[in-house]
Design a protein around this nucleic acid. Structure first.
Lengths: 160, 160
DNA sequence: TTAGGTGCAAATCTTTTGCAGAAAG
DNA sequence: CTTTCTGCAAAAGATTTGCACCTAA
C-alpha cells in the first residue's frame, strides 16, 4: 500500500508533477478499490471522505493524468461514463473483463490467451500492437445462480 | 441491398415498429457505409442528404432501436462518441477492431480465433457469453508506411 | 383509425476549461 | 519564489426527453 503510493509519487515527480493531498487521496481510493471499475463520480465521492475540500474537476484532472502516465486504465463499458482502474503492476495486457448484461457487474479475469493471437494480428494485418481491450458480454455466475468460480479468487473487499 | 432492407423491415414489423422514411434513410446510410464506424452525428449528416427534414433526435432514436434489435452494434472507442455499425448477417462475433493510436482509423478484422477462448471462459469462469468486444490498440499499416495487408481486402468505398 | 413516430427545443449528463487564488518543492 | 495545482462556476458536447403535431399500416 504505502510502497505503491511511494512508487507512484516517484513516477509523478519524474514527470514534474506534484503529489498533492488531492492526488494522494485519489490514488488511495483507486488502491482501495482495485477490484472495482469506478467512474469519475464514484471516485469523487470516495475522495470526499478523505479530503472533503476536493473538487470534481480535480478528480477528473487527476484521473486523466494518471491515465496518461499509464498508472490507471480508462475504460468504457458503454454505459455513458468512463471507468478507471489501477493497472496492477505485473500482469499488464493479461487482463480482460466479463460484463454481466443482467446485473452490470464487471469481473476481471487474468490470462495470456491472446498472446498467440496478437502475433498473428501483427503479422497478418501489419499492425503493431501496443495494447488491447477484450470484454465478454454475458451472464455472470451470480445471475445464473452458480457458485463463485475458483478462477475468480476470493470475493473482494477486505484486503490492503 | 434492397433485400436486406426488406429483411430489416420485417424485423421491425415483427416487433410492432414501422419502417418510416427516416428509419429507412438511416438504415441505407448504415448499409452504404458498412466499412465505417459512424457516430450519430455522422449518420445524421448522411441521412440529411436522403431525407433532409430528419431530425437529429430521430437518428438517435433509430440507432438506439436498431441496437436493441441487434441490427447494429453500438461501440465506444473512447473518443467520447458512440459509434455504430451494421451487424453483417453471417460472421457474428468473428469481428474485431484495430484502432490506430496515431491516425485514429478503425479497421475491421474477421476471425474466429476467440472461439476456443470463449469455451474456456464459459467453463472456467461460469460465464455464459452472449457477445464480445475485442479492440487492439496500436499503429496501423498506413502510419508505419507499409502496404495494405491482403487480409484487409480491397479499400472500401465503392461497393453495394 | 390509431398506435407508433417525428421535429423541435429544452433538459440532462458527463467532461472540460478559464481564471484568480493557493501551495508544493 | 515560481511553477504547478486547485476550486468554482461556466462552457462544451453528446444524448435524451416532453410535447403537440404527423403518418404508416
Amino acid at each position: 500500500m504505502e510502497d505503491r503510493i511511494e512508487r507512484i509519487k516517484q513516477l509523478l515527480q519524474n514527470h514534474n508533477y506534484k503529489l498533492t493531498p488531492q492526488r494522494e487521496a485519489t490514488v488511495r481510493v483507486l488502491l482501495e478499490n482495485e477490484e472495482d471499475h469506478l467512474s469519475a463520480e464514484d471516485v469523487f465521492m470516495l475522495v470526499k471522505d478523505k479530503a472533503p475540500e476536493t473538487g470534481l474537476a480535480t478528480v477528473y484532472r487527476t484521473l486523466e493524468l494518471l491515465a496518461e502516465l499509464q498508472i490507471v486504465h480508462k475504460m468504457n463499458f458503454g454505459d455513458g461514463v468512463a471507468r478507471y482502474d489501477l493497472r496492477s503492476e505485473n500482469m499488464e495486457r493479461h487482463h480482460h473483463h466479463l460484463l454481466c448484461i443482467q446485473c452490470g457487474t464487471v469481473d476481471e479475469i487474468m490470462d495470456n490467451w491472446l498472446v498467440a493471437i496478437e502475433e498473428r494480428v501483427e503479422k497478418e494485418y501489419k499492425f503493431q500492437i501496443t495494447d488491447h481491450r477484450l470484454v465478454f458480454h454475458g451472464v455472470c455466475y451470480r445471475c445464473s445462480g452458480k457458485s463463485r468460480p475458483d478462477r475468480l479468487g476470493v470475493d473482494p473487499g477486505l484486503s490492503n
